[in-house]
Design a protein around this nucleic acid. Sequence first.
DNA 1: GAGCAAGTGTTGCACAATGCAATGGTGACT
DNA 2: AGTCACCATTGCATTGTGCAACACTTGCTC
Lengths: 155, 155
Amino acid sequence: MSDDVDTITDAVLTASRLLVAVSARSISAIDESITLPQFRLLVVLESRGPLKLAAIADQLGVNPSTATRMVDRLVAAGMVSRTANPASRRELVVALTEEGAAVVAGVTERRRSEITRIVERMPASERQGLVRALTAFAEAGDEPAYTGRREPLWV
Amino acid sequence: MSDDVDTITDAVLTASRLLVAVSARSISAIDESITLPQFRLLVVLESRGPLKLAAIADQLGVNPSTATRMVDRLVAAGMVSRTANPASRRELVVALTEEGAAVVAGVTERRRSEITRIVERMPASERQGLVRALTAFAEAGDEPAYTGRREPLWV
DNA sequence: GAGCAAGTGTTGCACAATGCAATGGTGACT
DNA sequence: AGTCACCATTGCATTGTGCAACACTTGCTC
């Protein structure tokens, strides 16, 4: 049974390498001008909506100063906007611009299509099992989210 | 059927996010002083054995100048050695030191145990399916490796 | 209402990672 | 002997990063 788990762990590690490579590729393939950390920031805004700087830094797991400067560059690149929060003069609200949203959509699309291509090469008989298995795996990996625990969001 | 593939793609993407997070965690958890790119370099040496600088840059998919300077730092940190190649005076051979090998082993161990923990939380009935499915997926994802194609190695 | 603590974003400083271009040395092949 | 490709390095510029010091704002207390 421990052997059982070992076998699975090996399979997961192998698949993991492939998936990480796919993720990396889907980003480097996009607009040369955008970097992976910048893309992560865009993804955060896309999934959570407009956020203040501190919240972004928190989501990314980086220092607020890093967030400040990354937003500087993304504003310059026209990917996000930074506006004062009318409700609180000490907060700034950062939001995706249309262009930024388009970049996220592009990368996501590319990644989906790459994974789709791989899945299509799988024997059809294995596909149903893959869904069941991966779903169970993802559920088992969902952290209990105990107090204060906050995973940085990864692409 | 296209719907079929879509469903699977979603499941893969979800699992992918979890795995990327696990990978990131297993590195940041190790010795604070090592960075992800440095760790990737160590992994390359661990899997391929001693290499010349150009080969390392190639494996990592980075510019040779980047490899030069990363090796500088890793030599200073005692993780790798850089010695002249007796067979060719224009090449330098970089090899893992004992300490470097220990770091790779440590991270790998940590990652394995984290994945094992997740697998152990899965319903046992799903485990066999996971192995079959992931193996098929990894095989389908193995690029044909047509001429000149060379994927950078990812952790 | 004054004062203080916590929250918020910014800037200075230092360093790692990165690419590109230029350079100097080495090998191999004609 | 000459030429061309390969190899590692260095200079320069940019991004990402953390830490510490600041200045400003809010909220709460006394």
